Amino acid sequence: MIVQRILKNTKWELLLFFLLTGSLAAITLYIGTITGVIVVHDSRVWIYDVAGVVVLTLIIGYVAGRRIQGRIDPMHLNMLQVAKGNLSVRMPETVDQTFAGVYQEFNNMTDAVEKKMQLLQQLGEKEVMEKEQAAEKAVLEERRRLARDLHDTVSQQLFAIHMAASSLPKVLENNEEQAHLVMDQLILMSNTAQKQMRALIAQLRPMELVGKTLAEALDQWFPDYCRQNGLKGIKDMDLHGDMSEAKEHQLFLIVQEAMANIVKHAGAKLVSLSLREGPRQVVLSISDDGQGFSSTYQKQGSYGLTTMRERAEKLGGHVEIISKPGAGTTIRVHIPKFEDSKRGERE
């Protein structure tokens, strides 16, 4: 079992080969001494020689293993960086011909992935903007419908209330009993108009990003949302203001979805929002001190978590969800940036 574990690690496998080589050399020396091929006057000398050979091969094997492992570890680290969305990493040039080809292939592969991800992001942004334009048309149509509903329902109810209220003084003078009926009708109609107005208002949704940058929208929306839902909010933003409209739109929707999940499920009191824009990556992090959840629930997923993942993946990014029962939840979103993404968008 131990040998199998050793053979799975290149460094220890190389060290084992050196040890076997040293052992074979020591056995050969011992056999030569016994058969008389090698004459040793003092028996202790060959014991020292055997021990020296074994120790020397161990040292040489360890050094050689460390050197090889030292060339493998940077590539492993860069692969992890690429997996997390940082496509700017590259392997340095090396004089070691064994690894030079591997490093170059890794750089070529990363270049290809970066170009494809950039194209994917541009297509995703285009899709987002097309959907946004379609949504704006739908909003305009919905506003027209609401205007018609207001005219056909609340406006007519208010007109009826006005007519009934205007006739009430004369009815009260002529027939008090009939006046009470009119007042009951007024109460009923006003109550109906109020319900209709509430229903129409409930259908309206404010467009938080219209005419604002992402930072401006979050400065206004985040503290208001925390206050309305009894949360203490901490906000830390470092934005350069050169993000595309599609990225800002998707990130804002992800923030809204994450905050809605916290209010519905987390039972949290404190929420921390961090949004930082680097030269090659945008990182959004939202943490709460709520009840958290297990990895089983995370694998099953919920509608909110799935929606956030889909929004990030449209822009070539990904979402990390870190949570344990009783230890709160952290949602971290990585969106890659490309230097000429804005130029490609304009073209």
Rank of each mutant, 00 (worst) to 15 (best):
K8G: 10
E13H: 04
T21M: 05
S23E: 11
I31H: 11
G32K: 02
G36W: 05
G36Y: 02
V37S: 11
D42L: 08
Y48D: 03
V53P: 11
V55M: 11
Y62I: 03
V63I: 15
D73T: 04
K84N: 09
K84R: 15
S88P: 09
S88A: 10
T94A: 09
F99G: 09
V102M: 15
V102S: 07
V113H: 08
K116W: 03
L119A: 09
Q121Y: 00
Q122Y: 09
G124D: 00
A138Q: 10
A147L: 02
L150G: 08
D152T: 05
D152F: 01
T153R: 06
S155M: 15
H162N: 01
S167R: 04
P169V: 07
P169E: 03
P169G: 05
L188F: 09
L188Y: 11
M189N: 09
T192V: 04
Q194N: 11
Q196T: 10
R198G: 03
A199H: 00
L204T: 05
L204E: 02
T213W: 02
E216G: 13
E216S: 03
L218F: 06
L218A: 02
C226E: 07
R227I: 08
N229P: 06
G233T: 00
L239S: 00
G241M: 03
M243H: 00
S244F: 03
L251Y: 06
E257F: 08
A258R: 11
A260D: 15
A260L: 10
G267H: 11
R280H: 13
L284D: 02
S287D: 07
Q291Y: 14
S294V: 13
T296V: 15
T296Q: 13
Y297L: 15
Y303D: 06
E310N: 12
R332S: 06
P336R: 04
E339I: 09
S341E: 13
